[in-house]
Simulated scan of single mutants.
Amino acid sequence: MEPLRVVVCPDSFKGSLSASEVASAVAEGVLDVAPDAVVARLPMADGGEGTLDALLAVWGGEPETVATVDAIGRPAQARWVVSPDGRTAVVELAEASGLPRVADVPLQPLHASTRGTGDVARAALDAGVSEILLCLGGSASTDGGAGILTGLGARLLDAEGRDVPDGGEGLAAVASLDLAGLHPRAREVRWRLAVDVTNPLVGELGAAQVFGPQKGARDGVADFLDDALRHWAHVLEAETGRAVAELPGAGAAGGVPAGLVAVLDAETTPGAELVAEAVGLPAALADADLVITGEGSFDSQSVNGKVADGVARLAAASPRRPPVVVVAGQVLLPEAQARAAGIAAAFSIAPGPIELDDLVSRTGTRLRDLAAAVTSLTAASRG
């Protein structure tokens, strides 16, 4: 009999293990039971925080580092990475403009900006890449992507021709765009934006109303930012001809896709799909007998554009249609819904009632044990 072929492609268990660490623990469990198994370890991410590390775990090499600023303008360092073929730069917005960067100070929802991410993208353009994969997630700002554009050399001008200040508050005063100073390669490369939401830019499901509160936008500030984003969308449409206010996914990361789709013709794509492509998951699934993915909490969001959903879709489209098993810290999705999404089974690593701190400290061991049990069942069914 041919060796068991297993693809291990989990997301991180936030607050516990990285995707790479989860993949290692699961792979060890597989090999405990089937020492001759062929195991492909492909750490995954949904395009948000952790994507850079997941890709580095598969690609190898060292990240590039650039001097930039955080979301409130303080000096910072941010990493980015080039694909093995040298063509694609992966930029993670949270590296420069994420909430963790400004966790030491009160949130500044009106002034926080993505300008620092623009600095990182500029460095990637200077390096000569032909594509930028921008991973959105964990943003500290609601600036409609204006900060990235200014970091790339664009100017946002008020009615008197003066530069407006960074952040969502400044969007309300924008009257025109000056793109004369835009990086000369900014419109030559392909921009792909990894998103994990379908929210529009504005309205009750938009960037400010849904995601603004977690960035400090309360007590009417979210309403102000929603109006500012709506005004920004009108300016973008007048300047570029692109209507972005209702564009699905434009509300991601404080509205970043709005500015980049309009000015740079960027494409939005589910983040899990982009990461899967980047790490070679479709090819790995072609001859797999078993697929094990996982995340901290397996719930309704998991089958709506997250890693487990993307893995299940790719497995269903592969020649052998291997079963997909989810291992998770907690399983909240009913079995019927999991099966409808193409998940064969989902198991929690919790052995029973247990304190969260205890479970976190034993995550690696429990993942290994659970993967061994799943592999035993698979091997028995083959025999």
Rank of each mutant, 00 (worst) to 15 (best):
L156F: 14
V30W: 09
V210W: 15
L333P: 11
P319A: 14
N199S: 08
L107Y: 10
L314H: 14
V81C: 08
R155E: 13
S139L: 12
G48P: 01
V7G: 10
A71G: 08
V91K: 02
A27C: 03
L367E: 07
D70F: 04
A123L: 05
G161H: 13
E355L: 15
W59Q: 03
V82L: 15
L332W: 13
A222I: 05
V360M: 12
A253Y: 10
A23G: 10
G61F: 01
L367C: 08
V221F: 01
I148M: 12
A23C: 08
V325T: 08
V261Q: 04
A146V: 02
V326Y: 05
R368C: 08
A37V: 07
Q337N: 11
G296T: 09
G212K: 02
L52G: 15
V164M: 08
G144T: 09
E95I: 00
A283Y: 02
G280R: 05
A57L: 11
E188I: 00
G73T: 08
P270L: 10
L93Y: 08
I343F: 05
S302C: 12
A344Y: 03
E49D: 14
R74P: 13
C135Y: 02
D143W: 07
R190W: 01
A278F: 01
P248V: 08
P257T: 02
E49Y: 09
G241M: 10
A341P: 07
G161R: 10
A250S: 14
D143Y: 06
P353D: 13
V261E: 06
R339W: 04
E239A: 14
D357E: 15
H183W: 02
L274T: 00
W232C: 11
V256R: 01
V189Q: 00
T51I: 01
A173D: 12
Q209P: 00
R187D: 02
E273G: 08
L171A: 11
A123M: 07
L229Y: 12
D196Y: 10
A372N: 07
A262I: 08
V174F: 04
G220E: 12
W59L: 04
S300F: 14
P353T: 05
G305W: 05
T142I: 13
E92K: 05
P109R: 06
Q108D: 14
A175P: 01
D119R: 03
E49S: 09
Q301F: 00
V39K: 01
A19I: 05
A372S: 11
E335I: 07
A340H: 11
V303H: 06
T363G: 05
A315I: 04
D178A: 03
A278N: 03
A172C: 04
Q209E: 14
